[in-house]
Amino acid sequence: MLTAVITHRGENSVQVKLVGQSTGLVTPKIEAEEGQDMGPNPIAPEGKELLWGGLSFVVMAVAIRYFLFPKLKKGMDDRYAGIRADHESAEATTAAARGDVAEYEKALVAVRAEAAAKVDAARQTLDSERQAAINELNSRIAARRSEADAALSAAREANRSQITAAVSAVVTRATELSVGRAPDAAVVERAIADAMAGGSR
């Protein structure tokens, strides 16, 4: 462990010695010569330091106050004003863009509604036209079918009359040959008609 020994030496000097416990004081002495300059007084301000320090500060403060600070500050203010203006311009542009987007979306909604209405109208038109075409086609089919039915009925009736006449002629001739006398034509025709009606049943 070391012990500090402080010795006051004259008016302006303090000597500090560290002493080792085991070996005692081993510090070589530094003697201050009588009248030797021991350095400046640690408390009292020196005139030349006051002069240089004060002069330097005053020169610097005047230079900063009247030349350097105003120029620097003006530059800062100009740039901040520019940044503020750019910021405001950007905000205005953003607001305008938002308005444009809102208008676009509004127009888009209107166009979509109009398109939907047109599509609906077209679909209705198409449906009605298709229905009309189907109806017309159905009526044409029905007319053709009734015409065909009528033609078929007429052909069938004509065939029936021919068959009846042929059978009547055959029956009349066969009866005439077998009994020697021709049968009544009306009776023959009614009998043939009944027979054909029964056959068709």
Partner: peptide
């Protein structure tokens, strides 16, 4: 064994 000479306080301010 160990020696330290600490300068006077006004000596460390001497420029």
């Amino acid at each position: 064994m160990f020696a330290l000479e600490f300068p006077p306080i006004n000596e460390i301010l001497r420029w």
